[in-house]
Amino acid sequence: MIRIVAVGLIVFAVWVLAVKLLRALKGADLDWTGISFAIGFIVLAFWLRHVTGMG
């Protein structure tokens, strides 16, 4: 029972932080091309590490 309450509180806290982050990003003027490139580069690095087994 305590685990369910703890997990529920963690999920609620993550939800609140996600909402605050989305509201902050909505008003910010960001370079989405650069952000998407960085995320794609990181995903590609993890995928290549998984495929090749090196790194």
Results as ranks from 00 to 15, higher is better:
Leu21Cys: 06
Leu17Pro: 00
Gly34Pro: 10
Met1Gly: 12
Val43His: 02
Ala28Asn: 05
Thr52Ile: 04
Lys20Met: 13
Ile35Asn: 01
Val16Cys: 07
Val5Ser: 02
Val16Lys: 05
Ile42Glu: 08
Val5Ile: 10
Gly34Ile: 08
Val14Asn: 05
Leu30Trp: 04
Asp29Phe: 06
His50Thr: 15
Val43Met: 06
Thr33Met: 03
Ile4Lys: 03
Val51Asn: 02
Trp15Lys: 05
Gly40Asn: 12
Phe12Arg: 02
Val51Lys: 09
Ala28Met: 11
Val14Pro: 01
Ile2Thr: 12
Arg23Cys: 09
Ala6Asp: 05
Leu21Gln: 09
Leu17Ala: 14
Gly53Met: 00
Gly34Gln: 04
Leu25Ser: 05
Trp47Gln: 08
Ile42Val: 15
Leu44Glu: 14
Leu44Gly: 15
Trp47Lys: 09
Phe37Met: 13
Ala24Ile: 05
Val11Leu: 11
Ala45Lys: 11
Ala18Asn: 09
Thr33Glu: 11
Ile42Asn: 08
Val43Glu: 12
Ala18Gly: 12
Ile35Leu: 12
Lys20Asn: 15
Met54Ser: 09
Leu17Cys: 08
Val14Trp: 00
Leu22Val: 10
Lys26Asp: 15
Met1Trp: 04
Val11Met: 04
Arg3Thr: 10
Thr52Met: 02
Ile10Ser: 04
Gly53Glu: 00
Phe41Ala: 14
Leu21His: 04
Asp29Lys: 08
Val11Gly: 01
Val14Gln: 01
His50Tyr: 12
